[in-house]
Structures are given as C-alpha cells and as structure tokens.
Amino acid sequence: MSIDKNTVTKIARLARIKVEDSEKERLAVELSNILKMIEELDAVNTDGVEPLTSVVQMQMHAREDVVTDGGIPEKILKNAPESTAGFFVVPKVVE
C-alpha cells in the first residue's frame, strides 16, 4: 500500500492539520516509505494470536464516587487563547 496525494489530503483533514499542496508530493513519499517499512510485519504469522491489550498484568483499579476536583474555573481558563464570562470562545460552529 502506498500513500498518494489524495490520501495525504484525506488524512490531513481527519487529523485537522493544514498541508500545503506544495508539500503533498514530498509527504506522500515519506509516508509511503514509513508504510513500506511497517508492512514488513506481513511476514509475521499472527494466526490465532490475541492482540496485546496492555503490558501490565493486572485488573484495572477504579475510583470511589466522591467529588475531589473542579471548582477552579479561573485555573481552567487561565491558559485559554480566548475566553469570555467563564466560557472558552471559538469561531462560530454551524450545527
């Protein structure tokens, strides 16, 4: 499988990263090379192998249902590029 310019456009859109047309050719080549390397995996026989879910061999621990956080709107908004009246502000979204 090799990645062409259209695929670059498609995944760049999914990843929300602007890619200039001038870069697409180069990127397509770079990504295709990485993909070529990755595809050497096809040589490995994985029939009947369970995918590894995690390297930690334990059961997941869970929290008690208590309120231990929040109540810090100013800290939450402090790093925001734009905020008003306690809200984060973004360019208008059309629903």
Partner: peptide
C-alpha cells in the same frame, strides 16, 4: 474524573 456531575453550575465550575 473527580469533578461534580451535578446540573446547572456556573460555566466551567465543574471542570478538572
């Protein structure tokens, strides 16, 4: 997360 799940708080007051 440990922040409150109640309804109707001031904006971003129940955010960790």
């Amino acid at each position: 997360s440990g922040s409150s799940a109640d309804f109707g708080a001031a904006p971003n007051a129940q955010v960790s």
